[in-house]
Computed example of a mutant assay.
Amino acid sequence: MTVQSGVKQSQTLLADELRARLRGKAKPVGSLGRLEDLAVQIGLIGGSTSPDLGIAKILVFAGDHGITAEGVTAYPSVVTREIAKFVLAGTAGVNVLARAAGVGVELVDAGMLEPLPPHDLLLDRRIASGTKNARREPAMSIEECAAALEAGRAIDAHLGAENVGIVGYGEIGIGNTSAAGLVAHALTGLGLKSLVGPGAGTPALGLDHKYQVLSDTIDRAAIAPSTSEKRTFEVLRQFGGFEIVMMAGAMTAAAAAGRVIVVDGFISTAGAIAAEALVPGTIDNCVFAHCSAEPGHAALLKHLSVKPLLELEMRLGEGSGAALAIPIIRAAELMLREMADLPGEHPE
């Protein structure tokens, strides 16, 4: 028996044990619906029928994008830094929703145009002052892309030291729906048109202009078809943002460490797709928080054959959907660990 087949067999046995544990709880069989499926998933991630996931935290990755020079956004890049300042002040949308969930938030500067002053909640991992204009040249150099991936992986050690077992991934970055759309198109083969949406707001020149810019960008890069890790790296280098690349690296390390990865919206899902392409199996640790109102997000979720926990027509980003989903994940955890077992036969 190979190591891989042995791991698969042990996972199958654990899944059977988790389902049996859920059938034995003080409730009608299956009465908690998809919460029971979620409990099985987090039990498999935690490697236990009584998982203790530790602390929950949301990481908000921030970066700026050179492609904004092509008129693909409704807002200037300086807005990225302003929203990042609100996150550090505790007044951004994600902070408010995270407080309601009792979850902490940290900001990761992956590569904004200008740095922020030191702050207790700021992880300064900036690679450069924003990416280059991907319509005209690769968004980042080979060295920058490699550094962003490695910085993301290294962040997981920071989480492990704090006993973080549930980590939500959010982002800030004017222009990053363009970067995410390009990455997602290149890695999934989904039509680019289906992945182009308004982002933070419909650009002044319209969505047709945004689509044309992204189409030109794909043509300029001319990346050869392949599913290899090397091609995935090239896709991220050509089209990605520092926040997307760093997030993908962080997700691969979080999965390897057995953490629950809470994926927020369209950009975070593109990051998860990249993480899975880099390290197959990462997606098994991903819980998809919600379906964003950004049109391309539903297409990505369908491509992955996953169901989000929530659908509230949100499209804020920042990890806002992840904040709302974490209490549901915690409920599934506590159901396994603390809900009473029913003696004897189970009511149907």
Rank of each mutant, 00 (worst) to 15 (best):
F242T: 08
L324M: 11
T217S: 11
A147Q: 11
G191P: 06
I174W: 02
I166M: 08
I326R: 00
A74T: 02
A147H: 05
L336K: 02
H185T: 09
E106D: 11
T91R: 10
L309K: 04
G199Q: 09
Q4C: 04
C291R: 13
K8E: 15
S215E: 14
V108E: 08
L14H: 00
A74F: 03
V40F: 01
G240Y: 01
T227Y: 15
S305D: 14
V3H: 09
L187E: 09
L38M: 10
P343W: 03
G111R: 03
A157W: 10
V29Y: 02
V167L: 13
L121W: 14
V105M: 06
V167H: 08
A161Q: 12
T282G: 02
R231W: 10
H290R: 03
H290L: 09
E243P: 00
S5A: 14
G170A: 09
L88S: 03
E106M: 10
A256T: 15
V213E: 01
L59G: 03
E82K: 14
H290E: 08
Q212G: 10
M314N: 08
I45H: 02
G206E: 10
A56Q: 03
A26N: 07
G63D: 05
D124I: 11
G102N: 09
G30R: 05
P51I: 00
S48C: 08
E333A: 02
G281Y: 00
R135V: 06
A56P: 11
D284C: 10
D109Y: 06
P138I: 07
Q11D: 01
A275K: 05
A277M: 12
A186S: 13
G111A: 10
F86T: 15
H346M: 12
A15C: 10
A128H: 09
A134Y: 15
L122S: 04
T68N: 06
A322L: 03
T282V: 12
R135D: 11
T73F: 07
F239L: 04
I223S: 08
G63V: 00
L113K: 12
E276N: 04
T282K: 01
G199T: 05
A39K: 01
F242H: 11
D264H: 03
L310H: 04
K230R: 14
S10I: 12
G241N: 00
A298R: 13
V183K: 05
P327K: 08
L182V: 04
A84H: 04
G175W: 00
P138S: 12
I55M: 14
H290C: 07
L122M: 02
A270K: 04
S194I: 13
Q41D: 05
I166Y: 03
S228D: 08
T177F: 03
T188C: 12
A92F: 06
D109Q: 07
G240Q: 02
L159Q: 01
D219F: 12
G170I: 02
A62Y: 00
A204D: 15
